[in-house]
Each structure stands twice: as C-alpha cells, then as structure tokens.
Design a binder for these strands. Structure first.
Lengths: 178, 178
DNA sequence: CGTCCGCTTGACTCAGATCAAACTTGGTGG
DNA sequence: CCACCAAGTTTGATCTGAGTCAAGCGGACG
C-alpha cells in the first residue's frame, strides 16, 4: 500500500532541496505550498513555548513525510527545522490534493499510510508509558518480532525512551541470565 | 473536518452494541466486517505475547474509532477488548469504503481525521520521552494551551505516564512556588 | 596509527513509584 | 437532614530503577 503511494508521489512533479543543519523548512503560520518527503538527514517539527523552550512534535527520518496533517490545512501550525543537513523532495500540495480527489486508489493508499503511522505512533506511546526498561524492551520485541540486532541498540534506546547505558545493561543481563 | 466526518458516519446505516467489561469486540485474525465507534466506556487494542503478557496498542475512549487501520485491511491484526462496560456503534466496513471511494469530501475528512490522530499520538510520544514530571507537564500545557482543570488530573497523569501522586505533587509545588 | 563511535561496566545519586493513611466532595438512599 | 460510600486529591515515608558521569574496550575507516 505504501509502495503504491510512493509510486504515485514519485510520478508527481517535484523539486529537490538541500538544507543545512539549523535551517527552517517552514514556520508556524506559513501558507502550505509544498509537502516534504525527507530523503536524507533528520528534520523536526517544533512548537515554541512562551518561555523560549521548545517541544518536539515529530521527528522525521529518511523516507517519511513531514507534516502529513498539512495536506488539508491552509497554514502550518508549527515550525520545521533541519536537525542535520537534509535533502528533501518538495511536492506541490495542490497537485497532491488533485490526485487525492481524482484518484480513489491514491486516496486509499494515502489513508492507509496515515493509518499505519497512527498505529506505529500509538505503539510507541504505549511502550513509553511502561515503567521499566525490561518491560519496554519486551514490548518492543513483541511488536517487532525480533531481538534488536547489535548496531541498532543506541537508536532503539532513543526509541523506547531510555539512556543507552540502561538498555545495554538490560541486554547484558538477559545474555548472562539465560 | 472531524465534524464533517462524524456527520457522514452518523448518516450511514449502523447497529448499536453493548458489551460487558472483559468481553471482546474482535480477535486477531477475524475478518473485518464492521468499524467501531466507541460511545461510552473504554476499549483497548491488545497484542498477546507468547509468554501470556499483553501489550496495549491503543486505548479508545468515547468518540474515538477503534482500529482505524482496518478500513483497508481484510483481517484484524490484534485483539480488542472492553476495559469497562461499553456501548459502541457498528458501521459496516463496506459501506464506509464505498463512501470513501465515491465521495472525495468524505475521503478528505477521513484523511484529515487520521492526520490529527497521528499528530496527537506523536505528541504523546514526545511528551512521554521527557525525563521529569515537570517537563512533561510543561509540554502538556504548551500543547493544550491551558493548565489542566481539577477533576482531570488523575487521567492526565495516565496520559503523561506518571503516577497520580507525582502529578499532584508537581501541581502542589507550582501553587506554593508561585 | 590515530580517531571516532558504539558498546561495556562501575559508582553515585535522585526522581518518582509504591504503599499508606487521611481528607474533601458529590452523590445516594434512608 | 444525615449516614455512608466512592473517587479524586493530599501528604508522608520508603526504596529502587535508571539517569548521569566516568573510564575503558574493540572495530571501522581515512
């Protein structure tokens, strides 16, 4: 389903853009003109608080869309910035909307993509709501169906919301305890 | 947008169902026949692990759909059970799909609904990834735009992944510190 | 061969989970 | 009107999981 969607989107007219670390893709209040598909690097959606601190609303890694919600919104409701140097594909929002309205197979693929995003975001929430590293790791394994391969541990620690050390220790303990 | 969607859905043929606490709405592998709109009570999507423990994939409260993802899937990929006594509205999946394919305004409303679900689930993830109760509460307030009203605190503690006591204490501290 | 990065392990410390007990409030039925 | 109950809130005391800082290891790579 996702592949169908990407095929559609790859066929649409688009432009490429490269941004340096720290640059903005858009600001809150900007009119939505393009959709962003991240190809390399990492971008984040941020909401800025009155006291100057910010909260992260989304972390977009390669292959993911930024601000899916903006397909049917007139203006952005938050800022987007490049956490690293990124390259992104810009697709005009209007062309996507036309496609959405004229081709129900694309509409279905888009809805299906969103549904799977919902699922994975909810899964992460539920994992993060667990109290101990052991429980979180169990849940992660149960959801993904495999023990995390070495080399990915650090980023998985991020994903399940613990420090790398805590995850390493949990893994070490399982190895010895077995 | 959401209201548009609900208006559409309310117009569709449906049946009502009441389930006692602990009963199942569906099981993993069941063919998807109906969509569920929860009207009262709480239901959960669960994945059962080999060792008997379960992980929660979604908590559905009144007004929310269960298993949005299943609109375009043949069978369920997890179980759904009633955490409390619930009443739910059942809408045939086929009638929703027909509506989706024939009416692009409904398709847009549905996509927009899903997008907002994505946003709120991601927000919760980001909040839960914060380390301290103070930070989580700040982020919650920043996102919702208001200080949580008394009476909702306990459930907000759930939402931000802390014990009620910890949240009470944080709030008490802010009151005195001001 | 030096440098970087992911991993490993130790030690210390503390935020917050947990258990417990009391108090406030609203609702219910007698 | 009052006794009574349930839920939510408040506050105290205790204990532990894991965050943090630190030091060392091994493999990849220019």
């Amino acid at each position: 389903m996702i592949e169908i969607m990407l095929k559609y989107i790859q066929a649409l007219p688009h432009t490429q853009q490269v941004l340096r670390k720290g640059q903005y893709l858009f600001h809150q209040g900007d009119a939505v003109v393009s959709m962003f598909l991240i190809e390399t690097g990492e971008a984040r959606l941020l909401r800025r608080q009155r006291d100057g601190s910010t909260i992260v609303l989304q972390r977009a890694l390669p292959g993911s869309f930024l601000a899916e919600a903006s397909l049917f919104t007139a203006s952005y409701h938050c800022d987007a910035t490049a956490t690293t140097r990124i390259s992104a594909r810009l697709i005009s929002r209007n062309s996507m909307r036309k496609l959405f309205e004229s081709d129900s197979a694309f509409a279905a693929a888009w809805a299906s993509h969103l549904a799977s995003e919902v699922r994975s975001a909810r899964l992460r929430s539920e994992i993060l709501a667990l109290r101990t590293v052991a429980e979180r790791l169990n849940a992660w394994i149960a959801a993904k169906g495999e023990f995390p391969p070495k080399g990915t541990w650090k980023s998985i620690a991020q994903e399940i919301g613990t420090s790398p050390e805590a995850l390493y220790r949990e893994i070490a303990q399982r190895r010895s305890g077995k």
